[in-house]
Structures are given as structure tokens and as C-alpha cells.
């Protein structure tokens, strides 16, 4: 009796249908309803995710008459990079018509130093927080992490005043400082967790050998931190490249980054909009983070997930 209730009625074995005893692996039909549902759902979501990329690229390769024909999904009749060239060299960003190229170089000038400075500062922070705890260091870290959730708008105006006092408002230095400040919480968390995962004996052994703060940092910690540096690099390059707000507020009109210029091309355009040029400019702006994303693969995922793992 207990048997019957515990085990339920034995399901009719599929093997007995053909008259053979079940033997070997369970027969698995290639198409089960479950599999069909899974793959169809994933397929439709993939369409949703891929559609904009497709539209963006296809439109950028069309001519304006072709676009006015009104078929956004059609492949270009004669793919041409004219719009790309125009977007790069002569599209109008507000008052000037020099294309996106200056914006691209501005973004490069902002991204490279901001990335280096912010990562270096954060690496030192993480190292000090793990290996050289001092009174209050954990409190500062906690405020830092909470600070990362404060909307930027809250600190924006005082920051403008501070940078103006320091004479770096509206300059490359200004925007680099701002990126270093706002990159600090997540990067410090990243490095702190990484250094904490390294064997502490290594650090202790180095101290017993008489090495000091900077010596241990440069000669022991840094050589072991390559993986986390790559993750931080990916995080910062894409993050800073994609920034809009800090660029528009702090960089100054001479140094407006690519995202700001792109938005100006599309949304402040005078006259008839040239959608092919707009999309070419959009693709060009998205290209740098996309290349980093596709090249880095798993490391990008790690960087993204690292933000979610609390220390």
C-alpha cells in the first residue's frame, strides 16, 4: 500500500510499446514541446534585440531616396558608405559642420586618461582597504558604495562650482577628474574584492621581508592583478565612452565627446533630416563599445556582474 502511494502509478514505459524492455538511454525525441517553446521564445527575443542593430546598419548604407521609399527593413539596393563618410567628415553638429571626427577624437582624449587615472586610483584604494586598514577605512568605503547610488544630479551643481574654483571647469582635466570620482565606487569595490581574494600570506611575507606600501603594491600586487585590470579597463572604456551628462556639463564646448556630438547631429539638425547620415553617425558612435564587447566576451560579462557582487 505504502508503495502505491509513494511511487504513484508507474507510468507506462515507452519501451513496452515497441515490445522491448527499456534498456540503455531514455529515448529522447528531438522535438519536445518544451524545447520548441524554449527555442521559439529565445528566437523572438533575439529578433527584438537584433532588430535595431540591423536597422541601424541597413539604413546607414542606403541613399535618402531609397529611405523615403519607406521600407525600414529592406536591404539597401546598392550599399554605399557615402553616409558614413558624410557622418564622419561633414555632418552638422549644431553650428559647425565638421562631422563626428572631432567628437571621436575628443572622446579618445577624454577616455584614455580618465580610464588610466580612475583605475590607478581605485586600485590603490582597493589595496589600501584590504591590506592597510586604518581607523575608519571601512566607513569611508561604505559611504563610497552608498555614494554610488546618489543621483549625479544631486552633486552636479556643487561640482561645477568646485571645478570652476580649481580652474578646470570646461576642460579635459575637469572631465577626467569627474570620471575618476564617479568611477571610484565600482572600481574600488572591484579591486577590493579582488585583492581580498588573493592569499594574505603573500602580503604578510612581503612585509616580513621589509617591503613598504608602494613597493608591495607595485612589485607584488600589480603583477598579480592583470585579470582584474582587464575587467576594469573594459568597464571604464565603455562607461566613459558612453557618457553623455559629464561630457556635456564639464568638458567644455571645445571638448564635447562623441555622444554629445551625435545627439546634436540628430536632434539639433537644421533642415531636412538625413536619416542615413544619422544612422551612420549612430553606428560609428556605438562601434567602439561594440568592438570592445565582442572582443572581450566573457570578461565584459564578468565586469558587468562584478558590479552586482557586493563586498
Amino acid at each position: 500500500m505504502s508503495q502505491a502511494t509513494a511511487i504513484n502509478a508507474p507510468a507506462p514505459s515507452r519501451g513496452t510499446v515497441s515490445g522491448t524492455e527499456p534498456r540503455g538511454p531514455r529515448p529522447k525525441p528531438f522535438f519536445t514541446p518544451k524545447k520548441i517553446i524554449i527555442y521559439t521564445t529565445l528566437f523572438f527575443f533575439s529578433l527584438y534585440f537584433l532588430f535595431p542593430l540591423y536597422v541601424m546598419v541597413v539604413t546607414s548604407l542606403k541613399t535618402m531616396p531609397e529611405i523615403r521609399f519607406g521600407n525600414i527593413v529592406a536591404l539597401p539596393a546598392a550599399p554605399s558608405f557615402d553616409a558614413w563618410v558624410r557622418a564622419w567628415t561633414s555632418a552638422c553638429t549644431g553650428l559647425t559642420c565638421n562631422g563626428l571626427a572631432p567628437g571621436f577624437w575628443n572622446s579618445v582624449k577624454i577616455t584614455i586618461p580618465s580610464t588610466i587615472v580612475s583605475i590607478f586610483v581605485a586600485a590603490v584604494n582597493g589595496y589600501a582597504l584590504v591590506n592597510w586598514r586604518f581607523k575608519g577605512s571601512e566607513v569611508f568605503f561604505a559611504i563610497l558604495i552608498f555614494g554610488s547610488f546618489i543621483p549625479y544630479q544631486v552633486m552636479l551643481y556643487p561640482l561645477v562650482m568646485i571645478t570652476r574654483e580649481l580652474g578646470i571647469f570646461g576642460s579635459l582635466q575637469g572631465v577626467i577628474v569627474i570620471h575618476t570620482i564617479f568611477g571610484m565606487p565600482i572600481l574600488t569595490l572591484l579591486f577590493r574584492n579582488y585583492f581580498a581574494s588573493l592569499p594574505q600570506e603573500l602580503f604578510k611575507a612581503a612585509r616580513v621581508d621589509g617591503a613598504g606600501f608602494w613597493r608591495i603594491f607595485f612589485e607584488i600586487m600589480l603583477p598579480m592583478s592583470l585579470p582584474i585590470f582587464v575587467v576594469a579597463l573594459i568597464l571604464q572604456i565603455t562607461g566613459i565612452w558612453n557618457d553623455f551628462l559629464f561630457g556635456v556639463v564639464f568638458a567644455g564646448t571645445q571638448n564635447l565627446p562623441m555622444t554629445v556630438q551625435l545627439n546634436n547631429i540628430v536632434n539639433s539638425a537644421q533642415g531636412t533630416p538625413e536619416y542615413n547620415v544619422n544612422m551612420a553617425a549612430t553606428v560609428l558612435t556605438g562601434l567602439v563599445p561594440l568592438i570592445i564587447y565582442f572582443v572581450s566576451g566573457k570578461l565584459f560579462v564578468r565586469g558587468v556582474a562584478a558590479g552586482a557582487v557586493k563586498g
Binding site: S46, F244, T259, T285, G286, P289, L290, Y293
Partner: peptide, 12 residues
């Protein structure tokens, strides 16, 4: 496919 949009700028 699902994560690449996250790498893009909100502007894009």
C-alpha cells in the same frame, strides 16, 4: 545577442 545593447550608450 541579449547583452550587446547594454554595451551601448543610451544616446545610441
Amino acid at each position: 545577442i541579449m547583452l550587446y545593447p547594454f554595451a551601448l550608450s543610451f544616446i545610441v
